[in-house]
């Protein structure tokens, strides 16, 4: 009886309320996942409460990592403050990424619009795309020196083709019907581009930017592999040489948080700017 009553109650609720409830439940489940993962970390490492199952050399406890973080905040790392390391890494990443968006998106749009331009520019981009960009690092060092430029180029190298090609594909997959509808309404080529092709491509462009974002953050590690003595990835890499696993973890977590935050920012921008995404 109680069961059927509950069913009746659910039947009586409108869809929006049910959706909100499902949302709340999903968020709760996600929170539980992270709590369990964190619990396993605490359990395995003891956190000073019991004997660790894994040696701190391999996996320091959350407490040790937090203490390492506080030490780094207070004293910096190898003569420079933690903020400086984070800042220089962010500078390298942001410069590379801004360049890729500012040049790559318009170039991709152009490629999507014009067959001849596509025939000239797309093949070389497609040919370079599968080349592992880290393999080019020594070359970039020779060409662009050991300063920030070579780091920026390493990050931009895989990001740029992704952004160009996703913008191009977005333009090419704009519904022919929408373009024809605009033409039949008397729109000039420029108006069709500005008011139809461009907004219709934005969801695809955003998807490309989000994919490129995670790859860009990954390339930060490659960029700071050699020929530098600053940056958050460099900090983690050199700390590993001294087996300071706690510092390595601080670096890894900072990069993870950086990637996650950037992704959330782009997602929020996307939800705000392209409310029509996926609504066709």
């Amino acid at each position: 009886m109680a069961h059927s009553k509950a069913l009746e109650q659910i039947g009586g609720l409108d869809e929006a309320t049910l959706e909100r409830r499902a949302d709340r439940r999903d968020r709760w489940l996600t929170a539980v996942t992270f709590l369990v993962l964190f619990g396993i970390w605490v359990g395995l490492t003891g956190s000073g409460l019991w004997e660790p199952f894994i040696k701190p050399l391999f996996l320091p406890s959350p407490v040790a990592v937090f203490e390492a973080f506080q030490r780094l905040l207070a004293d910096g790392y190898q003569g420079r403050s933690l903020a400086h390391h984070v800042g220089i890494s962010f500078y390298r990443f942001a410069t590379a990424f801004s360049f890729c968006i500012l040049i790559g998106v318009p170039l991709g749009l152009l490629l999507g619009m014009s067959r001849p331009i596509r025939a000239v520019i797309e093949p070389p981009i497609q040919a370079i795309r599968p080349v592992p960009k880290l393999a080019l690092l020594p070359l970039f060092l020779i060409w662009f020196g050991i300063g920030n430029l070579s780091k920026i180029v390493v990050i931009a190298a895989p990001v740029f083709p992704i952004i160009v090609i996703s913008a191009m594909q977005a333009v090419r997959s704009v519904s022919q019907k929408k373009i024809q509808a605009a033409q039949a309404l008397g729109a000039s080529t420029l108006t069709v581009f500005r008011r139809v092709v461009l907004p219709a491509s934005l969801p695809g462009i955003f998807t490309g930017i989000r994919v490129a974002l995670s790859i860009g953050v990954t390339m930060l590690v490659g960029a700071e592999l050699t020929a530098t003595s600053e940056g958050i990835a460099w900090m983690a890499l050199t700390a590993a040489e001294y087996l300071s696993t706690d510092i390595v973890l601080v670096g890894v977590l900072i990069m993870a948080i950086m990637g996650y935050t950037l992704d959330r920012i782009v997602r929020a921008l996307e939800a705000h700017l392209v409310h029509w995404s996926g609504k066709d």
Binding site: K177, Q180, L185
Partner: peptide
């Protein structure tokens, strides 16, 4: 195409933005 010929498609030709 020209504005003296108005076209109505089956569906999916509206500008969702």
């Amino acid at each position: 195409p020209g504005r003296e010929r108005g076209v109505v498609f089956q569906q999916g030709a509206l500008f969702n933005w």
